[in-house]
Amino acid sequence: MTPAAAFDVLYARTAPALVRQAYLLTGRRTLALESVERAFHLAWNRWPEVIADPDPIGWVRAAAYEYALSPWHRLLRTHKHADKPPADPADRILMDAMLALPPVHRRTVLLYDGIGLDLPDTAAETEATTPTAGSRLLRAHAALAARIPELSAVPPEKQSAVLRHRLGALRPAVPLEPRPAAAVRGSGEHRTRLLGRSVLGLTAMIAAATAYTVATAPTEYIPPLAPGANVSGVPPLSGPQHLTERSRELHDKLRNDPEAGPARIAPGVE
């Protein structure tokens, strides 16, 4: 089987269920479809790693859950509000109760009660210890039982079975059909090509900027000029007094006719 054919088989077997699980995590159809497609894009880009993994489905599921529960989606207008709630009142109560849980508790409930993983596998996929995963599950069951009458009427040891049945029977009010495998694989390859071109363009810009800086940078150190400062104790600038009109006339007369006048102006040698 070629890598593309193996990818298509994995996608066909797991994508519909993963879209439904991502919808139960987020309550948003667009985000659920986007999360699963991004997870399979990542899987196709790392296909040798994914196909060698002992649990390829778990690899893709973890990537889809991480993307679906990312807090950055709250900043996007398209993902701020949940979709139309389910038509059945019981399904609507269950969906509201699930979305009211903290994201890590929601993920733990879906893995343990919705999918049926055991507690160690649930703890491993949520990156927690087994006691921590068990504590989260108990707190999530208590929070769900406070909002779901059907769950509060059964003892705690039977709540997992009731939740598994209710999560599996929930009917969303929006369609959750994923795109064909070939389209997802092609869009992933297109994103990879665009990312490669962007990286090459950014690298070329950095190289050009570096070359321009090297060419225009000074080759020796030029010390900066010291800033000016006030100096105290220095007398103000002084000089000869300005000549009046009368003084200027006398000055010019002495310069033009130095030997005329009294003997004291041009003394002789005795």
Rank of each mutant, 00 (worst) to 15 (best):
R139N: 02
A32T: 05
G114N: 02
S160N: 07
G116F: 08
L99A: 06
P48C: 12
L33K: 00
L200G: 08
M1H: 03
G134P: 01
A140N: 04
L137E: 01
R193A: 15
D252M: 12
A123G: 14
T2Q: 06
L94C: 10
V199C: 02
R197V: 09
P3Q: 10
W47C: 05
A128Y: 00
A100I: 03
P56F: 06
D91P: 06
E245V: 13
V50G: 05
R106W: 06
H251T: 07
K80C: 08
P149L: 03
P235D: 09
A169N: 11
L76F: 15
G201M: 13
I206N: 02
G27H: 00
A63D: 04
T130I: 09
V109Y: 04
D8P: 00
L101M: 05
S198V: 09
V19K: 05
V109M: 06
P120Q: 03
R248S: 14
F7I: 06
G239P: 02
L254H: 08
L176A: 04
S152F: 07
G58C: 04
D252F: 07
T203Q: 12
P48M: 12
I115S: 01
Q21I: 03
L254W: 09
L117Y: 07
A87G: 13
V214L: 15
W72C: 03
L250V: 09
P54T: 02
R255T: 13
A97F: 10
A263G: 14
R46L: 13
R139F: 02
S198I: 11
T26G: 04
R13C: 13
A6M: 08
L101S: 01
R139C: 00
E37Q: 14
T2W: 03
E189M: 12
A12Y: 00
A169S: 15
E189W: 03
H73R: 10
Y11P: 01
P235N: 08
L200Q: 14
L170Q: 02
L31F: 03
I57F: 11
G233Q: 08
D83G: 04
P155R: 14
R28A: 06
A217Q: 07
E157S: 09
Y67T: 10
A161Q: 13
P16H: 12
Y23E: 03
I265L: 15
L101N: 02
A124R: 13
T30R: 12
L110V: 03
P224C: 03
H165T: 13
R264N: 13
R29K: 14
I222H: 12
A124G: 05
D53I: 08
W44V: 02
H81S: 11
A204C: 05
S238G: 10
H73K: 09
A22S: 14
E49W: 07
R255F: 11
E177P: 00
A183E: 15
A145R: 01
V19Y: 03
P89T: 11
L170H: 03
R38M: 12
G116S: 04
A62H: 04
L94M: 11
L24A: 11
N230C: 12
